[in-house]
Nucleic acid binder design. Sequence first.
DNA 1: ATAATGTTGGAAAG
DNA 2: CTTTCCAACATTAT
Length: 569
Amino acid sequence: MKPPLSLLNPSMLSGSGSLMWFRKGLRVHDNPALEYASRGSTCVYPLFVIDPHYMVLDPNAYSPGSTRAGINRIRFLLESLADLDSSLKKLGSRLLVLKGEPSEVLIRCLNEWDVRKLCFEYDTDPYYQALDDKAKNYASAAGIEVFSPVSHTIFDPADIIEKNGGRPPLSYQSFLKLAGEPSFSLSVELSWMPPVGDVGRCEILQVPTLKELGYVEKHQDEFTPFRGGESEALRRLRESLSDKEWVANFEKPKGDPSAYIKPATTVLSPYLKFGCLSSRYFYQCLKDVYKNVKRHTSPPVSLVGQLLWREFFYTVAFGTPNFDEMKGNKICKQIPWNDDDKLLAAWREARTGYPWIDAIMVQLRKWGWMHHLARHSVACFLTRGDLFVHWEKGRDIFERLLIDSDWAINNGNWLWLSCSSFFYQNCCQICCLHNSLFNMSDCCFQQYNRIYSPISFGRKYDPNGNYIRHFLPILKDMPKEYIYEPWTAPLSVQSKAKCIIGRDYPKPVVLHDTASNECRKKMGQAYALNQRLNGRVSEEDLRKLRRKFDEDEDKQEPKPRRQRQKLIK
DNA sequence: ATAATGTTGGAAAG
DNA sequence: CTTTCCAACATTAT
């Protein structure tokens, strides 16, 4: 195979190697850092560093996995690495896998290998910002050129923030206006790569297997059905794009969160997260489909709209100090969440007693993926809807277990769903337009009133409860009349279904009707506090309000109202 | 100062 | 199947 002209350069003769440092961006297509590394280099070192904290089994973790990641995501990453290695081999190269603390390993490689250029995709996550600073500083001091292009996102978050006067836009619509049409050109498809250089004394590993990282079969009975890797990403992309009508008419909120055999969305999020799929390539493909159909949906609900949500969250996250915390986060409402580890554990272990919630949490554990609206249901339930547990606790669990967990998007959505940010307030638009002649505020309401019901929200999509039956087989024989609230089933029905509530499946940890009303009241008071103090809420203020919540609770007579028993035909 | 703006709820009533 | 109530705003643009 002859090298294309673009890769030939006089400097090839003088011995100039490049180090291509893979982290996300685990792909060969549209990878500007890889393209640059390959251009005019005598050799390229495609490196991936395995950080043991991220990858190696932690026997003390609450679920199978490492200290930071659940087993499904580790598996997804390993599959992605193996696929990348095989793609690189087709180009005449291979992936060099090393193990250790990433900055130490990288610096050792820069020292020992023939490297003139260090190339890696720019990353806005705080972890990489800190890591990359170290790498850039070291490389610059050593006279190594650094090339770090923005290619994980369609837009450069820094550009958008600058356009907005140094602050990130806080609504989707204002983001769209600022962003406008993207201008990027996909990088040239590689047909050939320079050979791997001499690695000296470095001990290069193969892409490890789960077993080699300490995992054994018994750690999980059902793995995510989604395979990692660029090849699978492109296959999935083509499969989704092949139904042009579906692409053109996609409307996110209309999808069915209970569809699991054939999910209602593309399930490309894990591939975007690891960069197995280029968001820019995906964007361009979608635009091509739009060109060839009469009409198509638009942001925020369209498929392009989904990609732009990702851009929005990346931008806000990058421009907001302490984005992943309540304290010190300017865009986050200060709310005295409770610290109830028992409620948190019930939610995490899928034993809240609400089958819709628990089934979603089982899907999270087994698959590492759930539909967007299913995530909404459980996030709302844990925080402002029912349990009033801190959103950071739920965020941590999603971050660990989701195969697509992405720092910016995960934190952004938890801020949103807990009504801590973004999702302050909304008017029903039609209602507002209609009433505008009378009184604009008549139809306005606080968003914290909009609570997802752990019973009726799922039933709306899946009246028979097939989703619950699949992920909570203990309830598989429960009649559909009771499957969303099995504690209301007569004992005879429970016996017949071989599922006694309180023995085989838990009773509800809280009564939704009362708990959600309590939450509404608490949110109202917390919002009032934030408003009164203009956002400057101290820890003492929060403690005081928390005490008041506790007193209010004590005042309540201990007569839990029986939940209404609603039957459907 | 005032106006415009804001991704996707639930239940009951009509 | 559509309307209304829920409780009664914060932020940004003009």
